[in-house]
């Protein structure tokens, strides 16, 4: 199964991440975002970073999760190689995601290009199609 793909958007990037369930799709959102910035395959698996995000709505959870990735990049130079764990739990009004990433904090080692400024709610959709869960949104570049 394709983990994520990008679609045409004039100024920014529209991504769609897939999974057998929301949890897996959420993990693939992380890879979709990082692959705008760098080829994650090239990033060395040297350090781990973990965080938790909580939000009342699933859309807001996706937004906050993406923002956390950008925070790690700006403050530590952290680039992701892979998602070691991405758990999703909760109920409407109180959703939670716990994330453990493996990657590198030496961004200067890689061809780092796409600057993701922020997540947006633009064209954000969470749904099911063909037996898969998908999460899509536009990233502000």
């Amino acid at each position: 199964m394709k983990r994520f793909e990008y679609f045409e958007h004039t100024a920014d990037t529209l991504f769609r991440a897939y999974g057998k369930d929301f949890e897996e799709a959420l993990g693939n959102v992380i890879l979709a975002v990082y692959n705008v910035i760098v080829d994650t395959e090239q990033v060395r698996a040297e350090v781990e970073r973990s965080f938790t995000v909580k939000a009342g709505k699933q859309e807001a959870l996706v937004y906050d999760l993406v923002e956390e990735l950008l925070y790690l990049l700006d403050t530590e130079g952290f680039l992701c190689h892979n998602v070691k764990r991405c758990s999703f739990s909760g109920r409407p009004g109180a959703w939670k995601a716990g994330v453990v990433l493996v990657g590198d904090v030496r961004a200067e080692r890689y061809d780092v290009s796409g600057q993701v400024k922020a997540p947006t709610y633009n064209q954000m959709l969470i749904g099911e199609w063909d037996g898969k869960v998908f999460i899509q949104a536009v990233l502000d570049l």
Binding site: Y71, Q115, K117
Partner: peptide, 19 residues
């Protein structure tokens, strides 16, 4: 504080994208 933490090491830098 999160915004300040993100900007702390960025004064005098260009960034990427169309900059």
């Amino acid at each position: 504080p999160r915004a300040k933490a993100r900007g702390r090491k960025q004064l005098g830098t260009l960034g990427a994208g169309n900059h």
